[in-house]
């Protein structure tokens, strides 16, 4: 077996006295797509933010290609550029055009020339059908378009892993599809992804593995067919019952 792309071991995160991540272990192979499910507050978002080093972890190991990046004394900037992240609320930069949003990272972090970055960005935007929006400001775009730009912005950094944090939760239902289609494309291209989501149908379809989080622990994990049809844990069963009834 090859070494995992990403390996979490005993990751602990506290907010004050509250234990948000309680010794999380997880191995992610290259090209694997993993969905994180669980109720709000179960630690899905915090886990993604910790992997991207946006939140410092209190304990445990986060290995990227065998290198522990959770080491507190480490400079986090070079690590973050290798990991793409997309947020629930898009977080596009409102004072920049779509094109500048996408080229900012490549220009300032990867040191690409403006022309080089522009060409790449326009190519990426063209692939998602937003070439004509390149010179618009984000507030002129629909939520679905904004979120697709946010995904492209992360992709422009040529990340090794993508972290998607409930990227359809802030969208009107009719806009969810276009965003999920883009995620399907990424899977086809072999992108390693960790996806926190409330879309159970989507998690089932796209994931190689699904992890159910409860109170900061991965309570149960397995291939989607197994986890969704025959969960072994009582809490998983109760959670699925609840969300599938609603859906």
């Amino acid at each position: 077996m090859t070494d995992p792309k990403l390996r979490l071991h005993g990751v602990v995160k506290r907010f004050g006295t509250k234990l948000v991540l309680d010794h999380v272990d997880l191995d992610v192979s290259r090209g694997e797509v993993i969905s994180l499910i669980g109720s709000s507050g179960s630690g899905k978002s915090t886990l993604l933010r910790c992997i991207n080093l946006l939140e410092p972890t209190d304990d445990g190991v986060i290995e990227l290609d065998g290198v522990d990046v959770a080491e507190p004394s480490l400079d986090a900037d070079p690590i973050r550029r290798r990991i793409g992240m997309v947020f629930q609320s898009f977080n596009l930069f409102p004072h920049m055009t779509v094109l500048r949003n996408v080229t900012l990272g490549p220009r300032k972090v990867l040191g690409q020339s403006s022309r080089e970055a522009d060409t790449l960005a326009r190519d990426l935007l063209g692939r998602i059908g937003l070439a004509d929006k390149a010179d618009e400001y984000p507030d002129r775009l629909s939520g679905g378009q904004q979120q697709r730009v946010a995904i492209v912005r992360a992709l422009a950094m040529q990340p090794e892993i993508m972290l998607l944090d409930e990227i359809t939760s802030a969208l009107d239902p009719e806009l969810v599809g276009e965003v999920l289609d883009l995620v399907r494309d990424l899977r086809t291209q072999g992108m390693t992804m960790l996806i926190a989501t409330h879309e159970m149908e989507f998690a089932r379809e796209i994931s190689d593995r699904v992890c159910f989080l409860h109170a900061g622990r991965i309570l149960e994990q397995g291939p989607p067919e197994r986890l969704f049809t025959a969960p072994t844990e009582e809490r998983t069963r109760a959670f699925l019952q609840r969300v599938l009834d609603l859906g």
Partner: peptide, 25 residues
């Protein structure tokens, strides 16, 4: 804060985040 998080997640340093993202806004 989410604007900073988005900038940092692209690998921008805290100084670059201040100059390109926070200050202009």
């Amino acid at each position: 804060e989410s604007q900073r998080a988005a900038a940092r997640s692209l690998g921008l340093s805290s100084r670059q985040t201040m100059v390109h993202i926070v200050l202009p806004q």
